[in-house]
Each structure stands twice: as structure tokens, then as C-alpha cells.
Amino acid sequence: MDVEAARLIAAGFCMAIGAIGSGLGEGFIGGKALEAMARNPQMSDKLFTNMIVAIALAESTAIYSLVVSLIILFVI
């Protein structure tokens, strides 16, 4: 296989597989937070900011794979 083609495939796979976990995690966090807000609407302000922080934390693995695929594409 051509090196160029291998690089492109690697970058695509890196991002695709890396996004699975963080997508699942973010969906779970959002769903659970909405459930909690529906049960106790007075807490929703507090829950919302905590949810945002948790989502940003769960997102970091996808960001790592994005950075790795960017390195594959542009640096190597």
C-alpha cells in the first residue's frame, strides 16, 4: 500500500474509533442529567454546570484522538 494512503486511512480510523467512547459517555451523562433535572427541577441550575463540566471531561478522549490524527495528517 502507498504510504500516503496508509496515512489517510490511519487518520480516519483514529478519529472514528476514538469518537465512539466519548460519544457514548456524553450521551450517558446528558441523559442521566436530564433525568435528574426532570425529577428535581429546582436543582437544574447546579446540575447543568456540572453536566457541562462532565461532558467536557468525557470529550477529552475524542480530543486526544483528534490531536493524534492531526499529527498523523500534518506532522508525520
Partner: peptide
């Protein structure tokens, strides 16, 4: 690494 790449990755993406 995580705090800086999070910001960079999101904005660049």
C-alpha cells in the same frame, strides 16, 4: 496535556 489539548482541539476542530 489534557487541559491544554481540550481547549486547542475544540477550537481548532
Amino acid at each position: 496535556v489534557s487541559i491544554s489539548t481540550r481547549l486547542f482541539g475544540n477550537m481548532f476542530a
